[in-house]
Design a protein around this nucleic acid. Structure first.
Lengths: 151, 151
DNA sequence: AGCCTTGTGTCAAACGCTTGATTCTCATGA
DNA sequence: TCATGAGAATCAAGCGTTTGACACAAGGCT
């Protein structure tokens, strides 16, 4: 049996799955930023608004964990979005120190406009792949996430 | 036929392909950073060294384009790696202003150690998926990249 | 009750990257 | 030949994020 690691360092490292993954994600993210810019919104803002929309009333720290960023990063984004009147911070009924996050009407409208752009990109991709391949891809990506998470 | 966009903003946006893509990439990247940290190397350093290894002698600006970052970011990384003695800048024979990038012996050794870690992660993922699914995933990701690039 | 652990939010400093503008070299064309 | 344009590198400034440290509130424990 022939060892395939005689090469001191991986040539052929270019067509690894993780490289393809990185490039695809980078391309998608870049496109999202480009399309979102005319709306005066960054991808991070959209992600945060969408998260708050899907689960209203969650705290900044909890939000930080889900987005895999630090609480300070969330606080920074929240402060900006609050300044625009798209997001509001309310005091938690039990824990006075904690502050729940909720969308304002303006926030919902901004999210709706942004989501139209994002959904359009998503549609373009899924149509390019076809429904079967899209489902396949999503399944495979989920398996990768799970595999990596409990590595 | 029932329209599926009656909802003002995408519920079910959580299981979009691009979200799965983002989460998978984030998980992989995080794992790489964790495993690379004990070696005193960041993922960006590894990527740069690998790029220079696969194509020795290329310029900083060209490298920046391939990695989708700015020339300054590359210059910053190069300066650091040069300080460690893992990378060296030589004057281009024709264009004296341009500087070719080459790996030193220490750089090759550091890259070899780092690549062992990265290859191990790659192996863990591909084994978890199986060879057929791995090839499928890589193909699908390539198609996504291509679809997005000329969007 | 009092202590202590957990979790949240905030401040300050450092780091990394991007944007913008400048300088320098080499190549091309009048 | 000289001028003009394109590409590469560098400097300066600004922004966003991470890291580290601290204060505060609620629940659990002896």
């Amino acid at each position: 049996m022939i060892r395939d690691d005689e090469e001191p360092v991986g040539l052929g490292a270019l067509d690894r799955v993780t490289w393809a993954l990185r490039r695809a994600e980078l391309a998608v993210q870049t496109l999202k930023e480009q399309r979102l810019r005319p709306l005066g919104m960054a991808a991070a803002h959209y992600t945060l608004l969408m998260s708050v929309h899907s689960e209203p009333g969650l705290a900044g720290a909890e939000l930080a964990r889900r987005l895999n960023v630090t609480p300070q990063a969330v606080a920074s984004l929240v402060a900006r979005l609050e300044g625009r009147g798209q997001l509001e911070r309310r005091a938690h009924p039990r824990h006075r120190h904690v502050q729940e996050l909720h969308l304002t009407d303006a926030g919902r409208e901004a999210l709706r406009a942004a989501d139209q752009v994002i959904a359009d990109i998503e549609r373009h991709i899924t149509e390019g792949l076809g429904p079967d391949e899209s489902a396949q891809l999503r399944t495979l990506l989920e398996r990768v996430s799970k595999t990596v998470r409990d590595a």
